[in-house]
Amino acid sequence: MPPSKGPSRSELLALEGSTLPDLGGPGAVVVFCGINPGLYTAWAQAHFARPGNRFWPTLHRSGFTARLLAPQEQHLLPRHGLGITNVVARATATAAELSPAELRAGGELLRDKVRTWQPAFLAVLGVTAYREAFGARRAVIGLQQEVLGRTRIWVLPNPSGLNAHYGLPALAALFAELRAAAGVGRPEA
């Protein structure tokens, strides 16, 4: 766990291009897929760790977890059938630094990973990233027609605090639709 004092700018910049291990894998019911790790997340070595990211509060409010988990408690998710990965593994200051070609290549790697893991659902967090990575130009939020083996794909809004289009209640409602479809939720974590 990182120290309570946050990282310096130089510490964050030194993490450019670093990676974060996937969480979960085979046996997951739902694998959440971010666009790529941010520098703060790489520093914390915990998915969606940047203060202001609404992933963890949304997971709780939508009923996936019985209580609000801190990013450093991510290790509790696999025992409840949940996992986390990213379209692109390398950390950047912003997702805007990723090229369309990098997102498409990440989409191919993600397809292979999902075919190996075989979760019931892949939940891609960000419709724009999904469109680019999967070549689905007209995709919208919700269940997609494309299936990867036995895995159904569900697109959700990006929970980043920078995504002003969706407040926490709206995010939680959309995540709850996936939770109900997946038949998981409110584990004792």
Rank of each mutant, 00 (worst) to 15 (best):
K5W: 00
I84K: 12
E108R: 15
V155S: 04
E188S: 14
G106F: 01
G81C: 11
A170P: 03
K113P: 00
P100H: 04
G185Q: 12
G107W: 02
A93G: 14
W117K: 04
G149Y: 06
N158A: 09
G183F: 06
R152Q: 15
L23Y: 01
S10G: 03
S8C: 06
P57S: 06
P57L: 04
T41D: 13
A42P: 12
G27D: 03
A70C: 02
N53H: 14
S10C: 03
L59H: 07
L76M: 13
R186L: 13
P159G: 08
G6E: 06
S10F: 10
E177A: 10
G25S: 05
A176Q: 14
A120Q: 15
Q145V: 13
A173L: 14
L23G: 05
V30H: 03
Y166M: 05
G63P: 13
E188W: 10
G52I: 05
A173H: 13
H165Q: 14
W117L: 02
W117V: 03
L125S: 01
I35W: 01
A49G: 06
N158G: 01
A91Q: 09
R9L: 12
G135L: 06
R179E: 10
Q74K: 11
G167R: 14
G161H: 06
A139R: 09
Q145E: 14
P57V: 09
R152K: 14
Y130A: 08
L59K: 06
L23A: 04
G38Y: 02
R67I: 08
R9N: 05
V29E: 09
R54D: 00
Q45E: 12
F134I: 06
A42Y: 03
V29F: 03
L178M: 09
A189R: 08
V29D: 07
R111K: 13
L171N: 11
F55T: 02
E16C: 11
V31I: 15
G161E: 03
L109Q: 12
T92K: 14
R9F: 05
A164Q: 13
V30M: 06
G34C: 06
P37L: 06
L82I: 15
P26V: 13
G17V: 11
Q118H: 08
